[in-house]
Design a binder for these strands. Structure first.
Lengths: 229, 229
DNA sequence: ACAAATTTAGACACTCTTGTCCAAATCGTC
DNA sequence: GACGATTTGGACAAGAGTGTCTAAATTTGT
């Protein structure tokens, strides 16, 4: 993909910068207006670029759209894996550590600009580009969910949790910590930080009531009046 | 809103039928193509009606869109409340009854045509019509979630569950039983029935591990080796 | 069968958008 | 300072879609 000329110097300088600002602006406009409603003139204006430059770089509205989705998928994946790397493998306070992880996942991967945009584009145009979004499904949930599941499996193996099926547990973990944000997500809004923390806290507590190995290790305190050895 | 003439006979006969078939076709097209991409000619064709009739009935693309959302909201609410009425207040087998309820909720309210369409329209155009979707939020989640929460509160009061906050529990219940369907929902797909049952089963099991009062009553069997009185 | 209301089909003006072309201005590099 | 590549702005053709209008056909109730 490099420039094919003599030395390995890339095409000029601001070239790539423009490409990026175009894709960036396009992401915003496609999300706000939908594919059909998105206006190339508007994208160009928001990117601070002439319309012709948009066509020079991407050729075509459809190709531009694809570039946007690919870019977003890549950037989101980077963020998600960086966050998964902070999963508490050997937790001190399991409850607090899982809450922290859930909040980071939300703030860095789901509620940030890229995450919001990618989600909306998938919801909005997913049916129109089956191949493109099949690709996303593989690269996105297809790789990140197992990665999270593996971390939960490790916690179970380490004796911190009692889990049958780590894949199910991972999906339920995500369902729980986002349970109170669904309506906001649906309308395309961004929850406030305290809402994210609240939802994560409630979700993790319930998660640990279901999967926590023993009250002594983790969280389940006031609720289980069930005496145990 | 009645016809203002002599007897209380409504305008002709097929009038209302046409209105409905227009709104119906419009719902489908708006979902597939988005508001901007939706084509009035296409809507008219799919409704089996001339374009002029569409304008006669609804005046305007925007007004037609609003009519679609209102119609869908109403119909979905009817379905949801009908389903909530089947909530197991005095369960025989709590696990099985809750799974049944979750499956009914999914099949009758979330995965059916109206539910799918309404969800997609909210996700797609929610930001463009703040008042309209504020209205939905009040009439939809604003009334159904508390209704579900009340049923869980009743189960707790009846000694079947141990719940702190019924509202949180209700949201988490929904999050859990849908945990495995998220990706499908996101792409606008319809999960197969066995997927719905699977997700509901796993979700309810986890829910009862967290909130079930005692293993004897419900489900938590093999996992809690914790001996109890 | 009659009269009123509704529906239809087609033409129409108008606006908006996409994508192309081109000459002038600008930028980055040597 | 000069050269080559990139960017710019504006004009342009072609197409598509909205909303209106009209006269003819059809349906509906009596």
């Amino acid at each position: 993909m490099r420039a094919s000329v003599s030395p390995d110097i890339f095409p000029p300088r601001g070239h790539e910068a423009k490409r990026l600002s175009i894709v960036d602006a396009a992401a915003g406009v496609f999300c706000r207006e939908g594919f059909a409603g998105a206006n190339i003139d508007l994208i160009a204006a928001e990117a601070g670029v002439s319309r012709q430059t948009v066509y020079n770089h991407h050729g075509d509205k459809e190709k531009l759209f694809m570039a946007v989705v690919r870019d977003l998928t890549d950037r989101c994946n980077v963020g998600i894996f960086a966050t998964i790397a902070t999963f508490p493998d050997q937790p001190g306070d399991l409850e607090a550590d899982l809450i922290g992880f859930a909040v980071r996942l939300n703030q860095n991967c789901i509620c940030n600009r890229d995450g919001k945009f990618l989600r909306k584009l998938i919801q909005t145009e997913g049916e129109r580009y089956p191949e493109l979004f099949a690709e996303w499904r593989e690269q996105g949930p297809g790789t990140t969910w197992p990665a999270i599941a593996a971390r939960f499996a490790r916690l179970a193996y380490g004796g911190y949790l009692t889990i049958d099926d780590p894949d199910v547990a991972a999906r339920q973990f995500l369902g729980l910590v986002n349970a109170e944000l669904q309506t906001t997500f649906m309308l395309g809004g961004t929850p406030r930080e305290d809402e994210v923390v609240q939802s994560a806290t409630n979700g993790v507590r319930t998660f640990l009531r279901a999967f926590g190995k023993s009250p002594a290790l983790g969280s389940v305190k006031k609720h289980t009046a069930l005496a145990n050895a």
